[in-house]
């Protein structure tokens, strides 16, 4: 079992390394993608600067907390889209029969598939996240917690993408639904928790777990609480388990296809 995990880890890392090498073929595109993504994120902060020049607090967050929220949102997005980019293309992969190549390999189909390419611009997101943490206040404790929450959040975002994409096994083309959910997870992640009430808040702590990915880490970085920390770990494991369960349940219904395709 341990050897199997070790081998899977080795192949996953090799796959990410090769995918990164592919993106590095063009130096200009590689670096400009990263830099422009950071600039893109920075542009959104302008509206908050204007808002905080009028108010000291929005939705219970100070300006520094908003920066941290952007840092967490960018960091989690970066981890998910960089390491598991193909989870966002999974619906198409299922519908066009591209899973065949992964099914004939003696490795975990889902992991092999979702780590088969990387999104270079997301390196910019990850760097941007760390810059925001530095502005918020860098301590060893904050850095460790931030890194940990970027990973748990990245895993949850990926799991949500896999869960909705796996519906393709039953309903065919669900890209629009899956993309909408993924966009919601990103768009609402950059607003302070206090502005959401009632049903929306329930959604954010259940099927659209923005609260677990973004809001709880903000709370913990301000005021660490062990039980909340455990909740984040528990929910992350739950989402990963549901994603794997649904994917493998659906895989039995996979119908492949005879479309021609190339691994590029």
């Amino acid at each position: 079992m341990l050897t199997e995990v070790k081998n899977q880890w080795k192949v996953t890392m090799l796959s990410i390394k090769y995918a990164l090498q592919r993106e590095m073929l063009n130096k200009v595109t590689f670096f400009s993608n990263i830099i422009f993504m950071m600039l893109n994120n920075a542009c959104f902060i302008v509206q908050w600067i204007i808002l905080y020049s009028l108010k000291n607090e929005v939705g219970g967050y100070s300006f520094k907390q908003i920066l941290l929220l952007w840092g967490i949102a960018a960091g989690t997005f970066g981890v998910s889209h960089f390491f598991f980019k193909e989870s966002y293309e999974l619906s198409e992969t299922i519908n066009t029969g591209k899973l065949d190549a992964f099914l004939i390999q003696p490795k975990n189909v889902l992991l092999s598939c979702i780590t088969s390419s990387v999104e270079v611009s997301c390196i910019g997101d990850m760097i941007y996240g760390w810059i925001m943490l530095f502005i918020y206040g860098f301590t060893l404790k904050n850095a460790l917690l931030f890194a940990f929450f970027c990973i748990t959040g990245g895993f949850i975002l990926t799991s949500v993408a896999v869960i909705f994409a796996s519906l393709s096994f039953w309903f065919g083309r669900v890209e629009i639904v899956a993309n909408t959910i993924n966009s919601l997870m990103t768009n609402f992640a950059t607003y302070p928790e206090g502005i959401f009430k009632g049903f929306v808040k329930i959604l954010f702590y259940t099927i659209l777990p923005i609260g677990i990915v973004n809001f709880l880490p903000i709370q913990l970085l301000k005021d660490f609480n062990f039980s909340t920390f455990l909740i984040i770990i528990g929910v992350t494991i739950l989402f990963i388990a549901v994603a794997f369960f649904l994917f493998y349940k659906g895989l039995k219904r996979y119908s492949s296809s005879n479309l021609m395709n190339v691994r590029v």
Binding site: Q21, R22, D100, N258, M260, V262, R263, V264
Partner: peptide
């Protein structure tokens, strides 16, 4: 080997 589906990484 599926003649219609390539498995090799083309940049490697």
């Amino acid at each position: 080997v599926f003649g219609q589906k390539e498995q090799l990484w083309t940049h490697l």
